[in-house]
Design a protein around this nucleic acid. Structure first.
Length: 418
RNA sequence: GUGGACGUAGCUCAGCUGGUAGAGCACCCGGUUGUGGUCCGGGAUGUCGCGGGUUCGAGCCCCGUCGUUCACCCCA
């Protein structure tokens, strides 16, 4: 009697061989530029005190108000599976006093994040992000560096059909001034109930509405970029100047909306053309008040999060990624019980020297084992049976050409490295 | 959370106006004793997502449920 099968929880993505190799490749490409720029790994818990996200990300955001996996642990604490990375990094930096040393603090992370949304293509309840944070410096040059690092990751992957959208959300004064006028403007519009509710939570959201009539209605709405304070405008102009110098193309998008409350100043998004509705493959920006909000000193920071799942989808859509299975250098086919023992020790020995070795286990017939060797893509094959063991010599067969040469078992390593 | 489409072997799918399931690929075995890729022969495989209903009879009809997918919403 077979037991009932258990399925994975709804909306999670799983990467099994051979696609897992492509996933791994994407993740490595995306984060490699960060370590070249001196960012160091920070490894954090996937669950945190719920309060961290309420205070850090903002209670009014959709992410916090309706998409968090929150539960009570056995000690009665409210715990939440992390929905994003920045808040946790800030918490850890403050907790361990990383900001007491030389600034900026530069870290990178990689891992799973969780959001209880309705799944669809490119949107999962557990998803993977890599990201970096540079904390403690206001210099526009670091804004440009952070953006350049993200862009380098996508380029390293081979992506072409994406664009960088850029804007500035300004400082607190800029936003306050703009909000007054925006609310006045919105008051003149006829909004349905759901839209009005969204506007009440965050009036900027209306800029993001996909309906044509709303786009038309918002065409003349006051734009935040026109309300930037002198220092904000100057900072942003310097960032774009640096990006120009770096040869990184971007589109100014004054209507960009970000879903997390902590963003200020320079804000950006990477959007891919072939992905459908969930087209954002990465995004980030500056966050001036976050650290203080979380009980730390008043330092600003900037960072990004890149979606590994979506970058993989994008790479597949562009056809710039393949799946590579593990390929061994040597495939050993043991014949008989005694040979199996020999194969085991021989493989172990060669692996210690760095050779990739696989063994055909399971007492398959020679023909079947050869077939297996062929499919594995192994470069060389040896058959290990009675005669080979007693003579101490094997036939080293190169699969591609089919040619084989006699080699002493003791000098296999040397023969393989010729 | 809202709306639409879909759910048949490991994979891609077929299954006529309802009569108790098929193809290709993949997999396994063999084509004379210990050497793969082609070819030939043979073989295994499904509670037709799950539960209920209509019917003499349902993979095909109805309801529910779970899942996937597309859009809204949101965002990576």
């Amino acid at each position: 009697m077979s037991q009932q099968k258990i399925a994975a929880p709804k909306g999670v993505s799983e990467y099994t061989p051979p696609r897992s190799s492509a996933f791994d490749h994407v993740r490595n490409c995306l984060i490699a530029p960060a370590s070249k720029a001196g960012y160091q790994l920070i490894e954090l818990p996937v669950f945190e005190d719920t309060e961290l996200f309420k205070r850090g990300v903002g209670e009014s955001t959709d992410v916090v108000s309706k998409e968090m996996y929150t539960f009570e642990d056995r000690g009665g604490r409210s715990i939440t599976l992390r929905p994003e990375g920045t808040a946790g990094v800030m918490r850890s930096v403050i907790e361990h006093g990383l900001d007491r040393g030389q600034l900026p603090v530069k870290v990178w992370y990689s891992g799973q994040f969780f959001r209880a949304e309705r799944p669809q293509a490119g949107r999962y309840r557990q998803f993977y992000q890599v990201g970096i944070e540079a904390i403690g410096l206001d210099d526009p040059a670091i804004d440009a560096e952070v953006i350049a690092i993200a862009d380098a990751g996508f380029k390293a992957l081979g992506l072409k059909q994406y664009r960088l959208e850029l804007t500035s959300l300004g400082d607190a004064q800029s936003r306050t001034a703009h909000k007054v006028d925006l609310l006045k403007f919105i008051a003149t519009l006829q909004l349905d109930e759901a839209t009005a509710a969204r506007a009440a939570i965050n009036p900027l959201r209306l800029f993001d509405d996909k309906r044509d009539e709303m786009k038309k209605a918002m065409a003349d709405a006051p734009l935040l970029v026109n309300y930037l304070s002198d220092s904000s405008r100057e900072h942003f102009e310097t960032v774009t100047k640096y990006l120009d110098a770096l040869g990184i193309s971007y589109q100014l998008n004054p209507r960009m909306v970000r879903g997390l409350d902590y963003y200020t100043g320079t804000t950006f998004e990477f959007v891919h053309d072939l992905l459908g509705a969930q087209s954002g493959i990465g995004g980030g920006g500056r966050y001036d008040g976050l650290m203080e909000q979380l009980g730390g000193q008043s330092l600003s920071g900037i960072g990004f999060g890149l979606g590994v799942d979506r970058a993989l989808l994008a790479a597949e859509a562009e056809g710039v990624i393949g799946q590579e299975a593990f390929v061994s250098d040597l495939f050993i086919i043991p014949l008989g019980e005694g040979a199996k023992l020999q194969a085991l020790t021989l493989a172990h020995d060669l692996r210690c020297k760095g050779v990739r070795v696989e063994i055909a286990f399971g007492d398959r017939a020679l023909k079947g084992a050869m077939k297996g060797a062929d499919k594995s893509g192994a470069t060389y094959v040896i058959v290990l049976g009675e005669s080979e063991i007693s003579s101490g010599t094997v036939e080293l067969k190169e699969m591609k050409s089919g040619a084989s040469t006699s080699v002493k078992i003791d000098s296999l390593f040397e023969a393989l490295n010729k």
